[in-house]
Design a protein around this nucleic acid. Structure first.
Length: 417
RNA sequence: GUGGCCGUAGCUCAACGGUAGAGUCCCAGAUUGUGAUUCUGGUUGUUGCGGGUUCGAAUCCCGUCGGUCACCCCA
């Protein structure tokens, strides 16, 4: 019996590493004034199949089935449609702008590979009701804060910015229709991956060449990004962002700014991706709700891989995990006659908030110290025939001292952990 | 959905046509009030599964399932 392909079991060590990432997500979001929300794991399939929604690509990856009530349903492949649905339903109850985040599991039926699984956890942050560059900068600030909290620097990752409006403006100048422009953007997305001559053939009907597209990408559109860079610069974050118009992103609902976080090694995939979707809410609600919105998603898989493969980030994580062991205090029962006293002491420490463990059955002292060590405990407290006098050993330094049981709580509190 | 590589003990791997092994981990002891070393002993396998070739298959062939990497796409 194993887990299904592309699905993961999380044994305690793995769960701790996962929780380290999720805690970084949650903490960074709260530092930016975002509040946490969630929706259902299962949604109506229609939510993803509507026009202007995710796009046909994601439909092929849907984990969908018919439930016992003959409803066509799907495990959620992304958060934005659920979020949009919820915002449309109750947006009048909330002051704008909305700053919401979520940490949730998502499902996509695709071939598992490096950085890509069938179930993954994704952090999502969305800022709804403000279409200004200040809102863009706020979202980018959060996207940048997460890898920084994990120990990554400007040398490890970069935000690549692009803008669909800049592209649409350029393509309109070149005489492309809206429909034609949409097709060209799909080609831009493949610019780095497909050979130039086959792309030229695809571009010919639109009156363009690869050289034209490359020319626009190289020339850039600095005036387009000036207000955003000013915002970022005030926060001291401008160095983390760079304009790269070759990014257009696949999802159909993006309308303006789009961006990706990329690791500088480029061995891995995008760490995060997002953008502005100013018409999605209006489209989904038949114009009943019309709010500008921007958001991004950051997955746990690629980010976790990057932590694992970056020595300074891995050391930071391991130090953090060591500093928060499963057990802080281990009671060594050296004399079974004192077991009852040891249990009383255990309970007192636990009530005071310490993470405490002890042997459930009589065991050799050596075994008990081994168990303390294995659990990562900072202190071993020896309860023996000298009771109520205790011996307390700092496991890391092997230093030992004696003190009365009544003073243990205060003594532990005075330690630096 | 397409293609490359790989499935042997809980884990990492060896044996590559001739009786399935090592390290590690785990358990116990050496050590009856002290954990990272050392030493001793012990548990664990339908060699992923199914079929074929052969006197004989972990080994060669086919299929299948799984892993992994790349394409596609994306977190």
């Amino acid at each position: 019996m194993r887990s299904l392909p592309g699905f993961r079991d999380f044994f305690p060590d793995e769960f701790a590493r996962r929780d380290y990432l999720l805690a970084a997500f949650r903490d960074a979001a709260r530092r930016h004034g975002f509040v946490e929300m969630d929706g259902p794991l299962l949604e109506s399939r229609d939510l993803y199949a509507k026009k202007n929604e995710s796009g046909a690509e994601i439909l092929g990856q849907l984990y969908d089935f018919t439930d016992k009530g003959d409803r066509e349903v799907a495990l959620r492949p992304e958060m934005t449609p659920t979020l949009a649905r919820m915002v449309i339903e109750r947006e009048r109850q909330f002051r704008k702008p909305l700053k919401w985040f979520s940490i949730a599991s998502f499902f996509r039926y695709e071939r598992p590979q490096k950085g890509r699984l069938r179930e993954f956890i994704q952090f999502n942050a969305d800022l709804i009701g403000d279409g200004s560059p200040a809102a863009d900068a706020e979202i980018l600030s959060l996207a940048i804060a997460i890898p920084r909290a994990l120990g990554f620097t400007r040398d490890d990752f970069v935000v690549r910015l692009s803008d669909r409006r800049a592209w649409l403006g350029f393509l309109a100048e070149r005489g492309c229709s809206d429909e034609s422009a949409r097709a060209v953007l799909q080609i831009v997305d493949k610019l780095e991956r497909e050979p130039a001559d086959s792309l030229d053939a695809k571009l010919a009907p639109h009156g363009l060449t690869v050289a034209d597209l490359r020319g626009f990408i190289t020339a850039g559109s600095p005036e387009h990004f000036a207000p955003l860079f000013e915002e970022l610069d005030s926060r001291g974050l401008a160095e983390f962002a760079t304009v790269d118009l070759s990014i257009v992103r696949g999802l159909a609902y993006y309308t303006g700014l789009v961006f990706e976080l990329f690791d500088c090694g480029k061995n891995l995939r995008a760490l995060a991706g997002g953008g502005r979707y100013d018409s999605l809410l209006a489209d989904l609600s038949d114009q009943a709700v019309n709010l500008p919105a921007i958001g991004f998603g950051m997955g746990d898989v690629v980010l976790g891989d990057l932590v694992e493969e970056t020595p300074h980030a891995r050391e930071l994580r391991d130090a953090a995990l060591t500093a928060a062991p499963a057990v802080q205090v281990y009671l060594v029962i050296a004399d079974e006659a004192r077991r009852r006293d040891a249990l009383g002491l255990t309970q007192k420490l636990r009530d005071a908030g310490w993470r405490v463990d002890f042997p459930l059955a009589a065991a050799r002292i050596g075994k008990q110290f081994q168990a303390a060590e294995h659990a990562g405990a900072f202190f071993a407290v020896v309860v023996g025939s000298e009771w109520p006098e205790l011996k307390v050993k700092v496991l890391a330094t092997r230093e030992e001292c004696s003190l009365p049981a009544g003073q243990l709580g205060d003594w532990l509190s005075a330690q630096s952990c």
